[in-house]
Design a protein around this nucleic acid. Structure first.
Lengths: 226, 226
DNA sequence: AAGTGCGTAGGTATTTATACCTATTTTCTT
DNA sequence: AAGAAAATAGGTATAAATACCTACGCACTT
């Protein structure tokens, strides 16, 4: 961050926001919300990640902030964030998500997002987050702190469980969600069905699920193969 | 419908809308969108179905239109719609949903909703839908017609399969997604585990799924148990 | 050198789900 | 009155998942 960004109050021109969300209702809603704000201007909108990436790539100087949903067609908000941060680190990224899950927040942080707010939060919090990140800071929704905290607590009390899944476990979980049985998974991965079953047991334990049904919901909620 | 509702243009006062959605961002967004419209006024907002029901029950004459999400905590938009239509048929209900699935639309129609639009549609369509239903008519999003049509086609070609799930089947599917076993479901519904298993087989056949995992994905995709 | 996590694999037993089948009653529609 | 569909329930059999357990080698860290 070599350039020191001036605060909103000190600027003569508004911050230009690129809004990416596959729900037109959200796009229109947020556009309407920001219409009355002099500090921010919706300079462009995209209905999927790829479109957003193309818009930024063609005119990177037109945007100061990317406000993006996580789950979008063609290119997810997480991948979009990674790409933008890699090529245009000047652009601040604020992730807007439905999910307050540990995995989703963690992915956003890994993708170097500058902030993360929930769709269950309102106009007030959006403005606060925008103010914070355009000031060069970060903003993570208060609402997600208890989740992170509770996960941390669980990890401490439950003897180090509830930690993240290993690569192998993620691989198997993805196959489970694709409706493959333990035997089929074993055949594909050249390991015993018994090993797959052991992995399943570990996955169930780590995710805190009791059945495969819960696992599928967990996987979808956490954006695995989504 | 004994009272003939005057059209928006003829009225001196705006239609009063109660907005129910568990995402504050949507509530704020739509409020902002309708702020510039003289014909409509957001007279109240609720963050869950129960709260919406209480607001209507305490002051039923304050609201002309209920604009509600489907998946909400405590009381779903579908159940809310049923209750409102049963007690206050004067109030027009417009369902606003993430899902463009047959099952979700079907449930809304069964609940006597006056309209159904998607969150992927924008401000334009929302206004069109509001205008139509306050005029005493109905409005179902263009975007859902192809889905209904495709389901219908499937039903014709696939020997009457892929038809819609019955109320009982939807009930059982919701319980499956809640991680309940056939035995548990049977106990709760006072029917044999065997009957539940037969229902499961029929649900699998109708939805075209092969396993419970597929069923969970189908249910989530179709907005059952939000 | 000891410990930890991971991936591997086996045993045993039980529970749950699925694939077939028939069959009755009720309800709704034609 | 006839027919279709839904909801009910049973039989038989297999497949799949879950709950317990032990065990070993490898890589990494302390």
């Amino acid at each position: 961050m070599s350039i020191n960004l001036p605060l909103a109050e000190e600027r003569y021109t508004a911050f230009n926001i690129l809004l990416a969300d596959d729900h037109q209702m959200i796009v229109d809603g947020i556009s309407g919300m920001l219409a009355g704000e002099q500090a921010y201007r919706v300079a462009g909108t995209a209905l999927d990640g790829q479109q957003a990436m193309e818009m930024i790539a063609s005119r990177p100087d037109d945007y100061d902030v990317l406000l993006t949903d996580i789950s979008m067609p063609l290119l997810s908000g997480i991948d979009l964030c990674k790409m933008v941060k890699a090529s245009y680190p000047r652009i601040q990224v604020l992730v807007l998500s439905m999910y307050s899950s540990m995995a989703a927040v963690q992915e956003a942080v890994m993708a170097e997002a500058d902030g993360y707010i929930l769709k269950s939060s309102g106009r007030e919090e959006l403005l606060k987050a925008l103010h914070r990140i355009t000031g060069g800071g970060t903003y993570f929704s208060e609402a997600i702190l208890p989740i992170i905290y509770s996960q941390y607590e669980k990890a401490k009390t439950q003897e180090d469980y509830q930690r993240i899944l290993s690569a192998r476990e993620l691989e198997i979980l993805a196959m489970i969600v694709k409706e493959q049985t333990s035997e089929e998974i074993g055949t594909v991965l050249f390991i015993s069905k018994k090993t797959v079953d052991n992995h399943r047991a570990n996955i169930l334990e780590k995710t805190g699920c009791r059945t495969t049904v819960g696992l599928v919901k967990w996987a979808i909620k956490n954006g695995i193969e989504g």
